[in-house]
């Protein structure tokens, strides 16, 4: 990994007396798919709140292409937990949301999004409301809403956490295909070890609170990846690491 696009150096964050993140340092290279894997409550979502500017770090530096992140210009497209589709907007108007916020007119935004519906398996559902779509389709619409913003980097916050196991496996394969085709620089936050192994080039393993990096695992497997002995071996190694790390029980 040469020139890092995103680099976090010694990031710390506490809420009152509760230290959530302690001395966190990570880097994501251009076109790289990196995951942050950690147990619940390890501050994974806090990292994204710091990146999107919803929270400010107590200490440390956040650099993008070598320059500190500016509060009014964030180079990220964020995909939140669950899909956060707006019930009251048709699918096409949900996917244009980011463009609308950027100040692009509704018609122009629709023209830009419309050609992508086929690739995302949503052709013919432009005028539907979210309530009419299955969980997997809703996630694809949410990802379309994310990538169409044309930002430098994707932040994916446990995007498939709310799906049933089969749909999740299906969506992971689909996301890998899409990522291989487009080469989006991506940072994924998840507590699903297999998901991290299937999708990532590198995995940062986070400890329980206060979250710090306890391991950095490269996944040198060829793509497309399928579950099998190689994936299972890496998965088992990471699980051992997570389960053997002492945690503060409360």
């Amino acid at each position: 990994m040469s020139a890092a696009r995103l680099e976090l150096r010694g990031i710390a964050k506490a809420f009152g007396d509760l230290q959530v993140l302690g001395e966190l340092s990570i880097a994501v290279g251009k076109g790289e798919f990196v995951s942050i894997l950690g147990p619940s409550g390890s501050g994974k979502s806090t990292i994204f709140k710091l990146l999107t500017g919803a929270l400010l770090p107590d200490a440390g530096a956040m650099l993008f292409d070598g320059a500190p992140l500016q509060p009014d210009h964030r180079p990220f497209a964020f995909m939140p937990q669950r899909d956060a589709l707006m019930d009251w907007r048709r699918i096409i108007d949900n996917t244009t949301l980011g463009l609308e916020v950027q100040g692009i007119g509704r018609m122009a935004a629709r023209r830009r999004v419309a050609p992508l519906f086929a690739e995302f398996g949503l052709a013919g559902f432009e005028q539907h409301y979210p309530a009419q779509l299955s969980g997997g389709m809703r996630q694809r619409a949410a990802l379309l809403r994310t990538v169409v913003q044309d930002k430098d980097m994707l932040l994916l916050d446990e995007p498939f956490g709310a799906l049933d196991a089969l749909t999740r496996a299906d969506m992971q394969r689909w996301l890998e295909t899409m990522w291989s085709r487009h080469g989006w620089t991506s940072l994924l936050v998840t507590h699903d070890v297999r998901e991290a192994v299937l999708l990532s080039d590198r995995i940062y393993v986070l400890s329980a609170r206060p979250g710090r990096i306890i391991a950095e695992v490269a996944v040198p497997l060829s793509r497309p990846r399928r579950t099998g002995a190689a994936v299972a071996a890496i998965e088992a190694g990471i699980l051992d690491l997570l389960l053997s790390t002492p945690t503060q029980r409360t």
Binding site: K49, T52, G53, A54, D72, H73, R74, F76, F78, P80, Q81, R82, A84, M86, L97, G98, V101, Q102, Q149, L155
Partner: peptide, 17 residues
């Protein structure tokens, strides 16, 4: 929904938007 607000904020929308 918190997620929706966080999403719109992450897109750079000011409070009134």
């Amino acid at each position: 929904a918190d997620e929706i607000e966080q999403l719109v904020a992450s897109m750079g929308a000011p409070r009134w938007r």
